[in-house]
Structure formats: structure tokens, C-alpha cells
Design a binder for these strands. Structure first.
Lengths: 184, 184
DNA sequence: ATAAAGTTTCAGAAATTTCTGAAACTTTAT
DNA sequence: ATAAAGTTTCAGAAATTTCTGAAACTTTAT
């Protein structure tokens, strides 16, 4: 399957950014191609279009599936698997965030929890544990927040984000309302 | 400088997570050690404590400085440089977020902007450009939002995060207030 | 000006990650 | 039961990233 130059440059860019997004070059390319093609693609098409070995495509799809980013499609009378992106662009972004949070924060959180429980053996350890507690509390706050943002619909999230710094004002407003009502 | 086992396991963990956080193993270890030691450390101490070559420490510090995560200290009468973490845990997290956003989203945003401007050459390109526009709009919204969160003080951010899903309710309340006032 | 104490750079070595392609496996149709 | 069409696995090759350590450089004190 031939790529036009615009499509090719997008796909190659996804490859270059791939490792920053949490996967590797070929996985980035595969995912980029799936996103901008209107129809799902077979593993063989991915392999030929991107000049990637068939085996590598198989491994890449497995990885993308572990991120819940691809959906398998079937065509009646055809036994091949066809792969396309799972969900809207918003949903994809949510999943990438969610997966990354899990991989980047959860292991640290559990190490910190375990370490903080122990009594400090000396002055230096007391300081270290204090710092660990600070990091722990921050990560926990972020985790809770992220979990709650996850439950919001894309539309509501979008409203919230577009509101931007306005959130600060809304908070002030809320604080004012509360103090008014407590005053009475 | 000897590390107690608790401190060592934290530092090693920072090393293992380092690459997920955007730097490499030794840089993660160096930063972890700086965070939990109450006093700034010299490059030589870092090198000896972590069993890392002096040259590698120098490169690592440069990298951490590019993230604005370390602060250089001087001791009167001593010409060595001593390195410690820059700012509070909250500020560190903000900087890591900010830098990663820059590295992960800005290049994509400019590629997309440029590609979308061109007229599509055919049906397939029209679809591809439509998808790119969707991604572009999402990244732009996130970028704006992140920029505005950056301007909030850690305390306010903390309040906002602790509020969590409550934000949804505050939004509803705001919507209600607006519709009430427009109705009158 | 010199030398001592320190830092940085960078070519090549070491370690790690990614990729290939052949073999093993699975599924489906007949 | 067999074979065709497909997928997955995995050992080793290739590519990439990280690290070392020696040489070059910089700063400071005298």
C-alpha cells in the first residue's frame, strides 16, 4: 500500500516520537498509520507498507493491545485479522495517559509505601523518609486526581480544559459561597 | 559516602524508573540521591557513592540542569561545585511535566500545523488531514491547559486536585449560575 | 607564570534495545 | 486427516544508547 508524502511524513514522525510516547519506533509508525487510514489494515499490509518484518509487526500489535489502543476487525469470508485504532482520539489520549501513569507511578508508590512504614534507623534515614513521604503524598494526590478525570466524559473534560485558568476563579467562587453559607 | 539499605533501595529504584521518567538510569540515581540527602553533594561524591565514572556524572548533571532540576551550591573556601535538588517536590514535578510536554508534544504540534495547511491531494489525504486536525486540536487544548496549570501556585493546584471529581460538580454549579443569570 | 584542583569532552567499549527471519504453532476449510 | 493460510515465538544480528576513562580545558591561588 503506497503512502502519499504527507501521510508518510506523519507516520515517520510518529516513529521518531514513539520512544518518547512510551513505545518504540516501529510501534509508533504502526499506530500512526492505523490512525490516519480510514480502513483497518492487515498485519501483512503493515509489514509491507512500513518495511518491517512480519514478526516485528506481530510483536508490535501485541504491545499496542496491552495499551488497549487497537481493535481487531474481521471481514466476512476472510480469515485475516485487520487492525484499526480503538476509540476516538480523546479516548486514545486517555488510555495513553492512564497506562503511562500506571507504569511510571504505581511501582514507585508501592516502594515508597513499604519504605515509609519502617522505623528510621538514624537521623539521615529520618530525613530521607520524610522526603519519601512528600513524594508519596504527591504521587497519591496525582493518582487520585487522574482516576477521577478518567471517569469524566470527553466532553466534560474538554469543557474543563477549555475553561483553563478559569478553574482558579471557579474555585474562588466556591470558597466564597462556602464561607458565606458558614457565616450565616 | 555510605548509603543505608533503605536509601540505597530508593536510589536504585529511581535508576530503574529513570528511563520511564525521561532520563536514563544513572541520571535517575543521581537525582534520587540528591533528593534524599539533606546536604548538596559534590560530583566526586556522586561518582563514588553510585560507582559511576566522573565523566558520566558530569554529563548527567548537564542533562538534569537542562530540565532545571538541580541547583549548584558553593561552600566558602571550597572551590568544588555541590549539587542539590532545585525547589520543592511540587516544583520538581511541575518541571518534569513541563519539560516532557515540550519534548513530547511541541514537535508533533508543529508538524501537524504545517501538514494541515496544505490542500489535500485526494480523498485519502483529506481523511488523513481530518484526523491530524483532531490530534492537533487535542494537543493544543492540553498545551493551553498545562500552561495555565503552570501559573497556579502549588497550594492552589493541590486544592484543585484534592477536590477531584468535585470539579465536575463545581462546573455544573457554574453552568447553573450562568443560566440563572441569563434567564433573568 | 605556574601548578593545583577541579570540570568537560569525546572516541570507542559495553550494555541494552530493537529487529529479522526461520521454525513452531494455530485455525479453518475441505 | 490434510493442507493452506495465517499468527506467534524466539535466538541471534543489527542498531542504538549509555558509560568509561584519558585528554583537553578552566578556574583559582600563589
Amino acid at each position: 500500500m503506497q503512502m502519499t508524502s504527507k501521510i508518510e511524513s506523519f507516520v515517520m514522525h510518529c516513529g521518531e516520537m514513539g520512544s518518547r510516547w512510551g513505545f518504540n519506533r516501529t510501534i509508533g509508525q504502526m499506530y500512526g498509520l492505523m490512525i490516519i487510514m480510514p480502513e483497518p489494515l492487515s498485519a501483512t499490509t503493515l509489514s509491507e507498507t512500513l518495511n518491517i518484518s512480519r514478526g516485528n509487526v506481530s510483536m508490535g500489535i501485541k504491545e499496542l493491545q496491552s495499551w488497549r489502543l487497537v481493535q481487531v476487525h474481521h471481514i466476512p469470508g476472510d480469515r485475516k485479522d485487520y487492525y484499526g485504532p480503538a476509540g476516538s482520539i480523546w479516548e486514545m489520549a486517555q488510555r495513553v495517559f492512564e497506562e503511562r501513569r500506571k507504569r511510571e507511578m504505581d511501582p514507585t508508590l508501592s516502594l515508597l509505601r513499604a519504605t515509609i512504614l519502617d522505623e528510621p534507623a538514624n537521623e539521615q534515614e529520618a530525613y530521607a523518609q520524610e522526603k519519601m513521604r512528600e513524594i508519596h503524598d504527591l504521587l497519591e494526590t496525582i493518582t487520585h486526581w487522574a482516576a477521577e478525570l478518567q471517569t469524566m466524559s470527553p466532553e466534560k473534560l474538554n469543557t474543563l480544559m477549555k475553561l483553563g485558568a478559569g478553574v482558579g476563579k471557579v474555585l474562588d467562587m466556591k470558597a466564597k459561597l462556602l464561607s458565606d453559607s458558614s457565616r450565616k
